[in-house]
Design a protein around this nucleic acid. Structure first.
Lengths: 114, 114
DNA sequence: CAAGAAGTTGTAGAATTATTCAATTCACTA
DNA sequence: TAGTGAATTGAATAATTCTACAACTTCTTG
């Protein structure tokens, strides 16, 4: 094998590490969509979106197929949806943890020493 | 809320996007471990490892607790393990796909037109 | 207290990524 | 075939992140 798996994994995660790319993947979770559609949900310029789509394409996470004048994107694997779900779970846990911490700090500040 | 969720997600993935950090998380999957232990499995300098541990700490993905002269790291959430598993699934699918493609190319090259 | 082991931090320079805007391709239709 | 909508590409600049090394902190033990 050329690239150790943990390095491939790191590259893969790095590919996901961009707000626009995440949004694209989340939109594609509900099925394939033309670029125009993605663009409509996103308030960025077409070329910026295209740059990010290219990153996802190069990484092999999505596929693009031309249909006449429009290009339709899709996830290569539905497993990507699971991954995003797992990430959300972790994040909500983390945020909940932070809120607890915050609440604790508030209480402490107002005199109650815990 | 301050930061939209998709941005938090992107940051989270970006945090995972480094080979050393991935290895650390994989090692921590089996339970908490002292830095010394991690270091032994990794063939990098202590300071480099420390840098990456700091990234994970700041992101709140791991916790560090001092126990005498050593510092023990642990995952904040076991869900992180699920995430890594999901990632492996996707990657192995992708690699399998590439191999198929490769095989196809090989066949084509040797005369068989598909 | 001095010395050593275990980790962490600061930081400078190199390397990657992001962002933006103009130019380009491709497909369709008047 | 000229024009238009849809999307991509190229390339320059700005911003982040990596890497490596030296200095530093903490704890422990002689």
């Amino acid at each position: 094998m050329t690239v150790p798996l943990y390095q491939a994994k790191a590259e893969f995660f790095r590919t996901l590490g961009h707000p626009v790319r995440i949004r694209v993947l989340e939109l594609l979770r509900d099925g394939p969509r033309p670029v125009r559609d993605l663009l409509a949900e996103m308030d960025i310029e077409a070329s910026s979106l295209s740059q990010q789509l290219a990153v996802l394409r190069r990484a092999g996470i999505v596929t693009a197929t031309r249909e006449g004048p429009t290009v339709v994107y899709a996830l290569i694997s539905v497993d990507v949806a699971d991954l995003l779900k797992a990430a959300r779970r972790i994040l909500t846990d983390m945020i909940a943890g932070q809120e607890e911490l915050l609440a604790e700090l508030r209480d402490t500040e107002s005199g109650k020493v815990t």
